[in-house]
Design a binder for these strands. Structure first.
Lengths: 133, 133
DNA sequence: CGGAATCCAGCCCGATACTG
DNA sequence: CAGTATCGGGCTGGATTCCG
């Protein structure tokens, strides 16, 4: 299976084979692992959005984290930022080509999460203890 | 594209449509986002491993985090734990069926990370500033 | 061997207030 | 509108020590 092939290639990155944080998997995954990155990517998936539009789409994000996460994504080249010199100024964020290319594998993972969420919740409930012996 | 379809279905989970942390995507992603989960899953991908074998495969994980991450994965039903009453005792961890089903989407994401890592590093370098004006 | 328990530093992130 | 600055709490995760 294709998973196995990738696993094989993964081995060269595991352990101390790699100097420090040079492992590409960890380097990228650590970013996607933060609280908001993937969520913002999915928000931008259906078209460019302005700052406050994103904020409205994700009500429980703070301004601070929105700004910061957007900047990190921009820094990684996943999204682009375009400022329109209107008054008041408006700033539009959109996925870059690379950002869009991330959508497919991300969607696969999200699909998995959706599909298995019930089973996971069950497993958790079972593990956490049949309190009622 | 299939990504778009998933994005559509995602919308119902974004924002306040969902009570609290009931969003399956976040619920699962937050776990995969932690520092070690995905790494341990890939380690277990090529067969069951004992505690110290995993530890050796991932030298820079602390005992504490190894134990804790394994427990969390077990709690979510992604791995199973089997104790052999030998002397000294040995404990074997292996991916469950659900855990194995995660390998495919995970491999896709890892593949993407590997493929785009150079571009990301470039983007970061460019963003962080041509210090040499 | 496979943990559990404790202590503690760092950072993640939210809340709030201010700016151009 | 689109940020920035500052403060502070809570959780993550590393180091160390002890147990069956």
């Amino acid at each position: 299976m294709s998973a196995q092939q990738l696993i094989e290639r993964l081995k060269q990155w595991q352990g101390q084979a790699v100097p420090a944080g040079a492992c590409p998997v960890r380097d990228v995954m650590d970013h996607l692992g933060d609280k908001w990155s993937t969520l913002l990517i999915t928000v931008l998936a259906d078209g460019p959005q302005r700052f406050n539009a994103i904020k409205r789409a994700v009500p429980d994000i703070s301004q601070r984290m929105l700004t910061q996460t957007l900047r990190d994504l921009q820094r990684d080249g996943l999204i682009t930022r375009q400022v329109f010199p209107t008054l008041p100024p408006s700033v539009e964020y959109r996925l870059s080509g690379m950002g869009e290319s991330l959508l497919e594998p991300l969607a696969a993972l999200i699909g998995w999460a959706e599909a298995h969420h019930p089973a996971i919740r069950e497993a958790r409930a079972a593990y956490d203890g049949p309190v009622v012996a």
